[in-house]
Design a protein around this nucleic acid. Structure first.
Lengths: 344, 344
DNA sequence: ACGGTTAGTCGAAACGCTTCGACACCATGT
DNA sequence: ACATGGTGTCGAAGCGTTTCGACTAACCGT
């Protein structure tokens, strides 16, 4: 591999001039610039990324922190990851995956202190996420994909769960539904303070109450079986429910299977609206699921962009962006079945 | 951040001794090793990864090459990616994502020649994949996840499609099925020489012919709708078919929906076996899909392990591993409906 | 008592770049 | 004619490691 030294020699200029020609930090005359370019072409020169990093104290590497164990990443996460990696590359950065699950943060700290990454993208954020303190302490710029409880001083991009839930309920109530149940993530995720579970639960409660409707929530694990069981329980305890709002892909499929098996027609007897999902997942079911699709691609792009802005010290304004899911109406939501007597 | 220099001063030894204590390349007495350790603890010292890379000409970074555009990564791919990233970390390596889609390979070459990565993991391999030549030329060690047409001289881990198809057919024929159709990936992927499509097609043809059965293959895009259309066509042209072997998750769901809509019972009237899939995906349907699940985790682990072995020059034997998918019998495969007259 | 190892340590030279200070040069405006 | 200021270039000092050659002291067999 040719080095900058070789290029300088061949072009008959000093090493630093080549560097300036490349970085543009200081002006270089058109003439010498051309000679340098010719030399680089001839040698097939590429700047050594590592040496560059060492000298400039910028690695152009972004780390993506995700707790790997917790049920692996979902389908949305994949979209997010590829979008983040792509955006990074477009901007001349690299995205490295750090699937770390140490509660104490020892491993994460070591990784950060090795100085490999210029910044971090934090996934699967909890309301009281300990990684925030860690990152502050180490001094690594970071952007959350998600939010802590009080994220005003932080940079984050997250799903606007409040709006998503409201839009979802608008859709359902416009169809005449009044008895709506929420099928959410596991209770464990709620207890752990996992953002989506907590926020959707709160928003659901709030908007249902505002509309004078009663709040029915079921938590269940990420499996079709758990979804079936939860749905069966719901049918027994709340037979009046005409619409299911779900945030749990696997459970949603289980729920639909259970409903069909019980002879319920979808959407005639029961509407199903899956939020924080994606049309791609929705297309897998029959009838095709009405979904509110998560903005994974946008979040990936935004997160990386904001992180780079922090690192480079440009774009002084902090990222505080919430993006709601988009409603994609398909075949599992329809008018509520004729109203029965509404006395309790 | 403390440097090795600081540690050396505090411990009262030379810089190189600290380095030797850390790398173990040369012996260091127990006494000074202890002093160095104490100094490091006191300073909270962490070796700078970049300086290390520059001096040792080893970045401990592995690049994962995947063509981003092509329908994004599938669910199996996610498993693979996280497994690869985890394995890398366990071994002290980092996995960086390079979603590159340039046919000419200019971008890939530039990336490689920057010297950031010690090696590459190549995904979505085609039978005549041009990246192989590129990697050879650049001199970067690499391992394929997949195989080219003639991969004997290369390192690879791939799904054993031949065995997978054979096992799948064993399962189906044991249930009495003789009229079996294959619903595969898109024709475009076949034309592009995408490994799975080509190999599964060939194996299907071979094993069906061996058993004296007629070969029916349908290619369709990665969508439920395409799956429905293909299934409708199949019903018209080959009404005798009693079993569908599919390799296309989205299309499989579409196919099942279409079958149900036509009043077919699954598996009574039609068995469905989804290969190169996963139980997690299978659990989404009702009835629950019988699948042959792809060994994503194993492939990730193997690929990274082999790549590291190449880089470090250990483990002289090349990786030539094929892993078949595992059969997970659920509810969409069952005995063939009573045999009709088998004359053509 | 003597060359030959070996364990343990040091200083200095890379690794391939960025960046700083200095300097020469030429065009200004006065 | 002269300071002023921008352009364009150079040499050298880092960046924080690894690694090489060299040296010392202790230990071995004879």
């Amino acid at each position: 591999m040719a080095t900058m030294h070789d290029v300088a020699n061949l072009a008959g200029v000093s090493l630093s001039t080549v560097s300036y020609a490349l970085t543009g930090v200081r002006p270089v005359s058109e003439k010498t610039r051309a000679r340098i370019q010719a030399a680089m072409d001839q040698l097939g020169y590429q700047r050594n990324a590592i040496a560059r990093s060492l000298a400039s104290r910028r690695t152009h590497i972004l780390a993506m922190l995700f707790p790997a164990i917790e049920r692996g990443l979902s389908g949305t996460a994949l979209e997010f990851v590829t979008s983040a990696a792509e955006t990074a590359r477009e901007r001349g950065y690299h995205l490295v995956l750090w699937p770390v699950n140490d509660q104490e943060g020892h491993e994460t700290r070591e990784l950060l202190q090795q100085g490999l990454a210029d910044g971090a993208l934090v996934m699967e954020v909890r309301l009281d996420d300990p990684r925030v303190a860690l990152l502050h302490e180490v001094g690594t710029p970071f952007t959350l994909i998600g939010r802590t409880e009080d994220p005003d001083t932080l940079h984050y991009a997250d799903i606007d769960f409040e709006t998503t839930v409201r839009d979802a309920l608008d859709h359902l109530t416009a169809l005449g539904h009044r008895d709506i149940a929420l099928l959410s993530h596991s209770r464990a995720s709620l207890d752990a303070g996992y953002g989506p579970t907590v926020r959707v639960g709160a928003a659901f409660e709030r908007y249902m109450t505002e509309r004078g409707l009663s709040v029915v929530v079921r938590h269940c694990d990420e499996s079709a079986d758990a979804g079936r069981i939860a749905t069966a329980g719901l049918a027994a305890s709340h037979p009046r429910v005409t619409a299911l709002m779900t945030m749990n892909d696997a459970a949603t499929f289980g729920a639909m299977a259970e409903l069909l098996e019980r002879g319920k027609r979808i959407p005639d007897d029961m509407s199903v609206l899956s939020i924080v999902s994606s049309p791609r997942v929705g297309a897998l079911s029959h009838p095709r699921l009405t979904t509110m699709s998560a903005p994974g691609t946008e979040l990936g792009r935004l997160g990386v962009t904001s992180l780079i802005a922090q690192i480079e010290g440009t774009g002084a304004t902090a990222l505080h962006t919430l993006i709601p899911c988009r409603l994609d109406v398909q075949s599992t939501t329809g008018p509520a079945r004729l109203p029965m007597n509404h006395t309790p």
